[in-house]
């Protein structure tokens, strides 16, 4: 049985690297990533599960890191935006105007990345089902939608 009574040393597997942190059981993964590991790509936008700016991948699935305790994911694979590089979706976001202020972008990228890894041929309905988990106030979602479509094309030609 795992038991954490107080501040505890926990080991996280982040972007393929083992990282030891000292955290409270009540610390959310979002806070630990940002404040203990310096991975500030995950953003707090509400800390209430509503905006998706804090999205990270746990074992490949998008999760809101503000709704997750760090102690819960000790044995899981965590991917943050810092763990993605030169992916099709990142390229597409640049080419198709997937962002403006950039604050929602990490969350959208990780969610979209997971979507396309799971369903490379996702249709509009599936794309909507996944992406309605995130809020963006700048783009009106047009650029994000175009980016997903463009990334799908790129993935086909991988």
């Amino acid at each position: 049985m795992i038991a954490y009574k107080d501040y505890a040393s926990i080991e996280l597997l982040v972007n393929g690297e083992k990282r030891k942190v000292f955290a409270r059981p009540a610390d959310t993964l979002l806070r630990v990533l940002r404040e203990k590991l310096g991975l500030t790509g995950a953003k707090p936008g509400c800390e209430n599960g509503d905006c998706g700016a804090c999205t990270v991948l746990i074992d490949g699935k998008p999760i809101k890191s503000c709704l997750t305790l760090a102690v819960e994911v000790g044995n899981k694979e965590i991917t943050t935006i810092e763990g993605l590089s030169n992916t099709e979706i990142q390229e597409a976001f640049i080419e198709e105007g997937g962002f403006q202020c950039g604050y929602c972008t990490s969350g959208f990228l990780l969610n979209s990345y997971a979507l396309l890894e799971t369903h490379p041929d996702a249709d509009d309905k599936t794309i909507k089902e996944w992406l309605e988990s995130n809020l963006c106030r700048c783009t009106g979602y047009e650029g994000i939608e175009k980016s997903i479509k463009a990334a799908q094309e790129k993935i086909k030609n991988r």
Binding site: M1, I2, Y4, K5, P25, E72
Partner: peptide, 21 residues
């Protein structure tokens, strides 16, 4: 940020759950 502290337990058997509770 959760302002207060709590303990966290993750038992693996029903008996452990009950005992922990």
């Amino acid at each position: 940020m959760i302002p207060f502290d709590f303990q966290y337990y993750r038992p693996t058997t029903i008996q452990e759950v009950i005992n922990t509770f």
